[in-house]
C-alpha cells in the first residue's frame, strides 16, 4: 500500500513537470490527465475513495474534456509549438523556478516544524460519511457553492459570447 502511494506520487510529480514544460497544449493536457489520475490513485490509497472517484469523473473527466474542447476550437498549429519553444528559454524560467523552489523550501520547513507525526492507516471514509457532513452541518456551504456555480455560468456565457462586428472593429482599431 505504501508502495502504491509513493509510486503514484512519483508519477504525479513527473507528469506535472511535463505539464508545465510541454510545448504542445494537447500534450500538456494529456499529461495533466495522467497527473490527475495519479493523484486519484493517491486518494484511493489514503482511504478516500469518494474523493478519488470525483477526481476521475469530474476533474479528469469533465473539466479536462472542457479544456480539450477549447484547445481544439482554437485550432492551434505547429507555429504555436514553435512559439512556445522560443519562449521557453532558461532566461525565462530560471527566475520563477528558483522562486517557486524557495517557496517550496519554506513550505517544507513549515512542515518540519509542525507536529505531523501522524500516520495515515488507510481506513476508508465512505461517501456516506461525506454526505452526512455535506447535507448536515455544511448545508449552507453547499447552497453557497450552488450560487458560485450559477455565477460562473452567467459569467462564462456573458464573457464567452461572440461580440458584434462594430464593437469588435472598435476594439481592434486601437
Amino acid at each position: 500500500m505504501e508502495l502504491a502511494f509513493y509510486l503514484s506520487g512519483l508519477v504525479a510529480v513527473l507528469a506535472t513537470l511535463r505539464v508545465i514544460t510541454s510545448t504542445n497544449p494537447i500534450h500538456a493536457l494529456l499529461y495533466l490527465i495522467v497527473s490527475l489520475l495519479a493523484v486519484a490513485m493517491v486518494f484511493f490509497v489514503l482511504g478516500a475513495p469518494f474523493a478519488g472517484a470525483l477526481e476521475i469523473i469530474l476533474y479528469a473527466g469533465a473539466i479536462m474534456v472542457l479544456f480539450v474542447f477549447v484547445v481544439m476550437m482554437l485550432n492551434l498549429n505547429a507555429a504555436v509549438t514553435a512559439q512556445e519553444r522560443a519562449w521557453l528559454v532558461p532566461r525565462t524560467w530560471a527566475g520563477p523556478s528558483a522562486l517557486a523552489a524557495l517557496l517550496l523550501v519554506v513550505l517544507l520547513a513549515m512542515l518540519w516544524h509542525g507536529d505531523l507525526g501522524r500516520v495515515i492507516e488507510g481506513e476508508t471514509l465512505t461517501a456516506k460519511a461525506v454526505g452526512r457532513v455535506l447535507f448536515g452541518p455544511w448545508l449552507v456551504v453547499v447552497e453557497l457553492v450552488a450560487m458560485l456555480l450559477l455565477a460562473a455560468l452567467v459569467t462564462a456565457s456573458h464573457v464567452g459570447r461572440s461580440v458584434s462586428r462594430d464593437a469588435d472593429s472598435g476594439r481592434d482599431g486601437t
Binding site: 520563477p96 522562486l99 517557486a100 524557495l102 517557496l103 519554506v106 513550505l107 520547513a109 513549515m110 516544524h113
Partner: peptide, 19 residues
C-alpha cells in the same frame, strides 16, 4: 503573479522564523 508569490514567501518566512 510573481509579486504575489514573493509576498507569500516573505510572510511564510516570517511565520517559520517565529515558530
Amino acid at each position: 503573479a510573481v509579486s504575489m508569490v514573493i509576498g507569500a514567501t516573505l510572510i511564510l518566512l516570517v511565520m517559520v522564523a517565529a515558530a
